[in-house]
Each structure stands twice: as C-alpha cells, then as structure tokens.
C-alpha cells in the first residue's frame, strides 16, 4: 500500500522527466544519425572528427576554462568578504539583483560601455593610455561572460563558507597557523564542494554560450553553442547540430562526473 502511494506521488516527476528530458534527449540522439534528407547516416560523426570541429571544441573548452577560473578568482574573495560583513544577506541580495535583469539587456549595455566612444575608452584616454579596441576581442568576451556568471559562482561558495564552523578556524589560529595556512589547509578544503558546484554552474553553460559570441565577440569567438545554433537555424542541418549537441552532452556528463561528489577528494576526506 505504502509503495503504491509513493509511486503515485512519484508519477508527476517521472512523467515530467520522461516528456521533457528523456524524450528530447532521445530526439537529439535520433537526429544526430540523420542527414539533410532525413536518412540514416554516420557522416555527422565523421564530420565532427575533422580539424574544424575539433578545433572548435578545443577553443570552447579553453574559453569556458578561462571564464570559470576568472569567475572563481573574483568570487571566492568576494564570498569570503561577504561572510565577514554585518548584513551579509543584504550584500548577497545586492550581488544577486543584477542577475534578475535579462541577460540580453546586460550584454547590450556592454556594447555601449566598451565602444570606441564609450566610457571605458574615455577613461583610458584621460589616463593617457589612449583608446583601445575593446569590443570584438576575446578579452571582452571573457570579461562579459565572467560578469554574467559571477553570481552563480558566489552563491555556492558563500553557502559553503557560511556553513563552515568558525570554531574550526579559531582552533587553527590558536594552534599557531598563519591566516594563509589556515586558509590553504582549513578553509579552502572544507569549502571545496562549493567551489566545485560553482565551477560546474559556470563552466558547463560557458561551453554553449552563443548570444555573447555574436554581440560582444562579433563571431571572433565561436563556441559549440554557436555552432549548434547555426546548424539548427541557419544551415538547417539538424543532423550536424544534433551531433555537436550529443558531444556537448557527453562533455557535460564527464565534467559532472569529474567534479562531482564522488570525486577522489571526497574519498580522501573520509
């Protein structure tokens, strides 16, 4: 009786997963085996392993890596600082508020800010450096992406730091560890789960960014996401788009697995 009612409550969830997760995934897999005329082919997979797409995959990973690293470099100290402030919930809210604004609007704002006649270049000019080409460079691409992803990095790290028992830190200091040693050997290892979660939240979506590549990087940066979008909307080569998507999904699963809780660090801790 009990299991029956449990099954019943499970139903909406299973149903949702099946209809909106499994079925689309199945479709993606199915399409990846079709050519332009909808006939079965393995050609898409062959095409993926040509230099063009491998290069594309490599550069996507490289940019996603840069974005994750820089987000982490900014987010960790910020989160650390946040836990030390008096009104931390308020500060946290202030950091999260910008993420309520539509992504596209924020990206458009950067078009103006980074423009040749924008405020950043005006500042550089006053500083005597002279105007620089900011838009349509990989620098601006990484910077804008980092800006957009920072809240996703801060939140999990903040939660991990907030849950950290302060007496452990005090104990470390009492036993003579410098603040750097305390951070390196106590605080950071104990919040590594937050860092992992943050990196997942940033790295994986970064692989498939596509709006920013066009607006900020002017297609000078192409990611897997751009290629998928192009194949579905422009080329109409759904098969190839689906094939790239399959590889993207595989990459995501591998990343989840590598950075997941079942990773080796967890074993060490136990």
């Amino acid at each position: 009786m009990q299991t029956k009612s449990r099954n019943f409550y499970l139903f909406p969830y299973t149903f949702w997963i099946a209809l909106f997760v499994l079925a689309p995934l199945g479709l993606v897999l199915f399409y990846s085996f079709t050519d332009l005329n909808g006939e079965f082919t393995l050609g898409n997979y062959g095409a993926f392993f040509t230099s063009t797409y491998l290069q594309l995959t490599l550069s996507s990973f490289w940019y996603a890596f840069l974005i994750a690293i820089f987000s982490l470099l900014v987010a960790y100290p910020t989160a650390l600082l946040l836990t030390k402030t008096k009104h931390k919930q308020l500060w946290l809210l202030l950091i999260i508020v910008p993420s309520w604004i539509n992504l596209l609007l924020k990206v458009y704002a950067f078009l103006g800010i980074f423009g040749t006649y924008g405020p950043v270049n005006a500042l550089l000019e006053v500083a005597g450096i002279g105007p620089q080409q900011l838009l349509f460079t990989d620098f601006s691409f990484v910077l804008v992406s980092v800006y957009i992803f920072i809240p996703f990095m801060i939140l999990p790290i903040f939660n991990a730091l907030d849950k950290l028992n302060p007496s452990i830190v005090d104990a470390s200091r009492d036993l003579g560890a410098s603040s750097w040693t305390t951070f390196r050997h106590v605080i950071f290892p104990l919040t590594i789960d937050g860092v992992r979660a943050g990196c997942q939240l940033v790295f994986i979506p970064s692989l498939s960014l596509f709006m920013i590549t066009r607006l900020i990087a002017g297609n000078q940066v192409t990611t897997l996401g751009t290629a998928i979008e192009q194949h579905f909307l422009v080329t109409q080569n759904w098969g190839m788009g689906a094939t790239i998507a399959v590889f993207l999904i595989i990459a995501m699963v591998i990343i989840m697995f590598l950075t997941g809780k079942r990773g080796m660090t967890n074993g060490k801790k136990a």
């Binding site: 063009t52 290069q55 940066v221 192409t222 290629a227 194949h231 422009v234 080329t235």
Partner: peptide
Amino acid sequence: YNDLFLEFKIELR
C-alpha cells in the same frame, strides 16, 4: 554554402 560560411567563421581568428 552554409558549411563553408560556418568554417570561415570558425577559422576567423
């Protein structure tokens, strides 16, 4: 055409 254009875009830099 589309494939060539996409390749051109990927190899842009």
